[in-house]
Every structure is written in structure tokens, then in C-alpha cells.
């Protein structure tokens, strides 16, 4: 019996070691962000004097002194938050309508929506830039940043699948009680579809927090950049100090990590993958 317990502990230790090796790059990022500048230059050899080095948050302070980081991170939150919130209602309302209500030309329209999933954003980037950035003058403008993502064909498709699986009883009962479809969508269907909706919101948050191409295109001012673009500029901003750069990287990662850890158990990936097979 104790042999079995020993095996269990051995397995756990091996797993932890393997896990640590796998995320060494991330650990190295955190470690470097805490090192004083002169030690960063020693690279891995700095580990030898680890006990005499004073790890500190000085690099983090330096980031705030060198660039308007609050601005950047605030914009990134606003960007992801706006898309997630607008998307939540716009996509779910559309998905609900296609799942339950008669729409003129509904079948054809829905086939069209699913066909749109295949169009990669990269194909749309240049015309969107000409449309929003040049024609509508929305360079360095918040509207220009989030507008392209307000509706998402994949989310509509995914949420519709989910609505179709829900039992109709409650909605029918509400119909008999003379509730309007809007009321039913908002007070019955939306709460019932919570797992699918939370999944969409989290995946949207993660996708757009790391979004790169569009924020890069639609901004050309250092006062209007998301964390990813800000990092790209910061890491070529002289003087190159890797400690500061890693501090910036850590701070650009933490919000994503937090959101994911908090909501992780709500994600229903099974349905997400079932969805796209069609």
C-alpha cells in the first residue's frame, strides 16, 4: 500500500518537473522582470548569485515612467469589454431569432452566415482600413478599433446550436401568458443559455486581448495602442532594457490569466467543436 502511495508522489513530482520545464519561457519572463538591470546582462549566470541579488519591482515602476501604460491597459480593457458586451447581445439575439422565430428567407440567410465563418479577418483587413481608417477617418479612434468585431458569424452559429438544444416548454408557457418574444429572449432564453454565452464572452476576451493585426493597422499614435501593440513598440524603444520589457510582458499577460482562471470552469468546449464540424 505504501508502495502505491510512493508511486503516486513520484508521479506527481515528475509531472510538476515536466510542467515547469514546459513553462520555463514564462518563468524566465517573470524572473527577468524582477532582476536589476545589470544582472539581466548576466543572463542565466545570474542564477548563481540568486541569493545575493535583490529582486524588486523596479522594472515595473520603470515601465510606468517610460510609457503611458495605464492608458494602454485601459484601452485594451475597454476594447475587449466593449466587443464582449455588444457581441453578447447582438449575436445571441440573432442566434435566438434563427433558432426559434420565423425570418423571411431564414434558411438562405443562415446558410450565408455560416459561409461567412470561412472568411479570414486577414482578407478583410485592407478594405476595413480603407473604409474605417481612411474614408470614415477613424484612425486612432475607439469606434474604428471595435466596430469590425461587433457581430461574429461563428458566435451566432454556436449560440444557435445551443438555443436549439434547449427545451421549448418554458418559452411556450410564457407565450401562453402573453409574454412578448423580446421578453422571452431576454428573461428566459438568455439565462438558460448562460454556459454558451459565457464561453463566447471568454473566448472573445482572450482572442481580442491578444489581437494584433487590426489594432496595429488602425493606430499610429503611441497614445492609442492596445497592450500587444504597445509591447511591440516598447521592445524596440531605446534604451533596450530587457527587465523592463519583461515587466511589460507580465503586465500584459496578467489580465488574460485572471479572466481565464476565474471563468475557466464555465467553458463548454465540447459544443464549440461539435459546432464547426457541420
Amino acid at each position: 500500500m505504501s508502495n502505491k502511495k510512493f508511486n503516486k508522489v513520484l508521479l506527481l513530482v515528475t509531472a510538476i518537473l515536466l510542467g515547469i520545464i514546459f513553462i520555463t519561457p514564462l518563468l524566465w519572463m517573470v524572473y527577468t522582470s524582477l532582476l536589476p538591470d545589470e544582472e539581466v546582462l548576466h543572463g542565466i549566470l545570474s542564477i548563481k548569485n540568486l541569493f545575493s541579488i535583490k529582486l524588486s519591482f523596479q522594472n515595473y515602476r520603470d515601465v510606468f515612467n517610460r510609457v503611458p501604460f495605464f492608458n494602454t491597459i485601459g484601452l485594451t480593457f475597454l476594447f475587449t469589454g466593449t466587443i464582449a458586451t455588444i457581441g453578447l447581445f447582438v449575436n445571441s439575439a440573432c442566434a435566438y431569432a434563427f433558432a426559434r422565430l420565423p425570418i423571411p428567407g431564414g434558411t438562405i440567410l443562415f446558410t450565408l452566415i455560416t459561409a461567412l465563418i470561412i472568411i479570414p479577418f486577414e482578407t478583410l483587413a485592407i478594405p476595413l482600413f480603407l473604409m474605417l481608417g481612411v474614408k470614415c477617418n477613424l484612425m486612432n479612434n475607439f469606434a474604428g478599433l471595435f466596430l469590425p468585431y461587433c457581430a461574429k458569424a461563428f458566435n451566432i452559429f454556436f449560440l444557435r446550436q445551443y438555443f436549439l438544444l434547449l427545451p421549448k416548454d418554458l418559452e411556450e408557457a410564457a407565450r401562453i401568458e402573453d409574454a412578448s418574444w423580446y421578453r422571452i429572449y431576454f428573461s428566459i432564453a438568455l439565462p438558460l443559455a448562460k454556459p454558451a454565452i459565457i464561453t463566447c464572452v471568454i473566448l472573445d476576451f482572450i482572442t481580442h486581448w491578444s489581437e494584433y493585426l487590426w489594432p496595429l493597422i488602425i493606430s499610429n499614435k503611441s497614445t492609442f495602442e492596445t497592450a500587444q501593440i504597445g509591447l511591440g513598440h516598447f521592445y524596440t524603444l531605446p534604451p533596450i532594457q530587457w527587465g523592463d520589457i519583461m515587466a511589460y510582458s507580465v503586465m500584459a499577460t496578467i489580465p488574460m490569466l485572471l479572466i481565464f482562471t476565474l471563468f475557466q470552469r464555465h467553458i463548454v468546449l465540447t459544443n464549440a467543436t461539435e459546432g464547426l464540424k457541420g
Partner: peptide, 18 residues
């Protein structure tokens, strides 16, 4: 209701994708 609930998304998809 079907049309009204779906129109915002359809409109945005038309403008931002098609």
C-alpha cells in the same frame, strides 16, 4: 420579432464582412 432581433447582427455582418 425574428427579423428585428436578427437585424443588428445581420447589418453589422453585411457592413463589416460582406
Amino acid at each position: 420579432a425574428g427579423l428585428i432581433l436578427s437585424i443588428p447582427a445581420l447589418f453589422i455582418l453585411f457592413l463589416m464582412v460582406i
